[in-house]
């Protein structure tokens, strides 16, 4: 990006330097004005009161709200990452199967789960677990939202990962498959021993950014009553009537965790690029959006 950014404009001469200085000053003024306006509005509504911020940041808030909430957010996301990978590998393999009908069925399942919004999936799964599964005694009815979140995240992100596996294998140089055939491997062996392992290495950074998507989408659990970070923060906020402050803290926790993961993904991409024939650049994906180019 750096190199490209500098090609768009020349090294500045005296006039351009003056213009840049003026623009910098103007931008600074605009940012300051916005900050001041926000502070005035916050102050008018008594949102700058020290005890509101103290109650959102003290030991009680962390020990009884943010950390337990974060634990559930990370637990649900962590489980969902693993199950989504399994789901994605199975359906990725199926989409590469030599037998047509298996490919088509897998294709329909993957396209369906990618097209349905995660929230719609979660609402349905919540009712499914609480009204149908829980009465049968398989799960506690209090856990319906928890399972709804995990399964909802699994099927959507699993479908995205299945696409990653498929396109990862397709993006490998043709020689890999030909070499496997030349040493006498069957189609299945070639996929299992040569192509998918390389595609997976190439996918790792994208998987890590998919983890970010899963963590962000786990906040949707708030809408089906799952006790995760956002839910706990809202509860803390309604208890001490400092909801603005607690939500800001929760948002910052999400941002820090996801920022670190995004950063790791791009580091990893650089490291892995020598180990595979595939493309390692992490796919920046929108939450609930297709991670790769749409088919």
């Amino acid at each position: 990006m750096r190199t490209q950014a500098t090609v768009l404009f020349d090294a500045p001469g005296p006039r351009a330097r003056r213009n840049i200085l003026l623009s910098n000053a103007a931008a600074l003024v605009v940012v300051l004005v916005i900050v001041v306006l926000v502070l005035i509005q916050l102050n008018e509504q008594d949102q700058l009161a020290p005890e509101k911020w103290a109650n959102a940041l003290n030991a009680n808030a962390w020990a009884n709200y943010y950390l337990p909430g974060l634990k559930f957010t990370l637990q649900a996301s962590g489980i969902a990452v693993v199950t989504a990978m399994v789901f994605g590998l199975i359906f990725g393999f199926m989409r590469l199967a030599p037998f047509g009908p298996i490919r088509w069925i897998a294709g329909v399942v993957v396209e369906f789960f990618r097209a349905v919004p995660v929230l719609v999936m979660m609402f349905f799964l919540y009712f499914f677990f609480s009204r149908i599964v829980a009465p049968s005694g398989l799960i506690a009815s209090a856990d319906a939202a928890y399972y709804g979140v995990i399964v909802g995240l699994t099927v959507y992100n699993g479908a995205v990962i299945a696409e990653l596996v498929r396109s990862g294998v397709k993006s490998l140089p043709k020689g890999q498959r030909e070499a496997a055939a030349a040493v006498g491997m069957t189609n299945n062996q070639s996929l299992r021993l040569v192509e998918v392992p390389q595609a997976l290495t190439a996918m790792l950074p994208s998987l890590l950014s998919q983890f970010v998507v899963i963590i962000k989408d786990s906040a949707l659990g708030y809408l089906i009553g799952f006790y995760e970070l956002l839910q706990y923060s809202r509860q803390l906020g309604s208890g001490y009537s400092n909801i603005l402050q607690t939500l800001v803290v929760a948002a910052l926790i999400f941002i820090v965790i996801n920022f670190i993961l995004t950063w790791l993904a791009s580091k990893l991409a650089g490291r892995l690029s020598s180990r595979t024939g595939g493309d390692t650049a992490p796919v920046t994906s929108t939450t609930m959006g297709p991670a790769l180019s749409v088919r």
Binding site: V212, K216, A219, L230, L244, L247, V248, F254, I255, N258
Partner: peptide, 14 residues
């Protein structure tokens, strides 16, 4: 890096 749900809830509740 912020969940959309938080942006939405921040808008409405805060």
């Amino acid at each position: 890096n912020t969940p959309l749900t938080i942006i939405m809830v921040l808008g409405v509740l805060a």
